[in-house]
Design a protein around this nucleic acid. Structure first.
Lengths: 111, 111
DNA sequence: ACATTGTGCAACTAAATGGTTGCACTTACT
DNA sequence: AGTAAGTGCAACCATTTAGTTGCACAATGT
């Protein structure tokens, strides 16, 4: 599973709100989670499936209803990706500062 | 600008690679950034426009060419959003643990 | 046994997305 | 002045996405 898929799944207001709700309660079912989002249950269910495919949530059938829980692991992966970008970015700025101050050429990756 | 728009912009392999490149060098132009991605320059340009609209990169015309730089601020916002989700999630788990161990009812947000 | 509740799935439609080609235009080089 | 380089923009096409309606079906409650 690519990180891009995780971001893609997070890139929708409805799905983000679902995730946000799920971070606040462990008691959600497909029905309760789909209510009050301004679209039909079936519409919401499609979003939910996307989140499940991206492994951001897991669906556990419990008799008549299906429990929905957050998968914090995938969320953590996405966060880590951003953190690493920021690290590279900071190093770049540092190298640039070095170049300006001391005339030490910085290694160029691309032109 | 909604956080969802940031995630949406990050939710594509081509755009993620662009962001990754930009985190490694401050020397990119539209042309150099668009090369070697397996699609036409005009195709890449569309992705770049999306990133610019999401304020993940900024485009600065420099005579004949256009310089592209990363906007780390927006990236930081996205990261923060995830961090806050994780915080709520952790608190939830803690409350749940409390409930199981001590039979202290936890405040339910939803049913 | 029967009704109701919670869910899943398929078909369909409108709009957004990802990609292409073709062309115009300005900046720089000789 | 003439050519090449770097870009921007519009038109077009195929695919995916976001939403709907309609229906089937198993689990629960009376």
């Amino acid at each position: 599973m690519l990180v891009a898929d995780t971001f893609k799944a997070l890139g929708d207001p409805v799905r983000l709100q679902m995730i946000q709700r799920l971070s606040q309660s462990t008691q959600y079912t497909v029905g309760s989670l789909s209510a009050g989002l301004g679209l039909t249950r079936q519409g919401a269910r499609k979003h939910l499936q996307l989140l499940a495919d991206a492994e951001l949530v897991s669906l556990q059938p419990r008799g008549r209803q299906t429990k929905v829980t957050l998968d914090a692991t995938t969320l953590a992966h996405a966060k880590r990706f951003i953190t690493e970008l920021e690290l590279q970015w900071d190093q770049r700025l540092l190298a640039l500062k070095d170049f300006v101050e001391n005339d030490v050429p910085t290694k160029q990756t691309n032109t």
